[in-house]
């Protein structure tokens, strides 16, 4: 199953750091994503894009995981060579992950 079937996401940017939220539509799926979508798994998934640490924060009250990817925006929004300098489309990439 792809994450897209049970969750939605938005990406934010600060300098060379991207944060990608993962939000379940239904709270019953929260424990599943908490178990399956670890920081290590996300780091491996974005290995060609993120060249730093991945941290995961949990917000249990609303069923949200927040992934913070260091060195993930090609040196920062201003100097990145990427077409999507802000990494705004990375949210859709995370939702392609199979669990």
């Amino acid at each position: 199953m792809k994450l897209k079937e049970i969750a939605h996401s938005r990406t934010g940017d600060k300098g060379d750091i991207s944060n990608i939220s993962l939000i379940v539509y239904d709270m019953k799926d929260y424990e599943l994503i908490k178990e399956k979508v670890t920081a290590e798994k996300v780091k491996e998934y974005f290995k060609e894009i993120c060249h730093g640490e991945v941290k995961r924060y949990e917000i249990d009250s609303i069923g949200v995981l927040n992934f913070v990817l260091d060195k993930a925006l090609g040196g920062g929004v201003t100097r990145s060579l990427a077409l999507d300098k802000h990494g705004k489309s990375l949210s859709s990439a995370l939702l392609e992950m199979e669990i």
Binding site: R10, G12, S21, N66
Partner: peptide, 14 residues
């Protein structure tokens, strides 16, 4: 859902 997406926008440690 729209509020959750925006709350996490550009947030690191909540």
């Amino acid at each position: 859902a729209t509020c959750k997406e925006q709350m996490l926008y550009e947030i690191h440690d909540p």
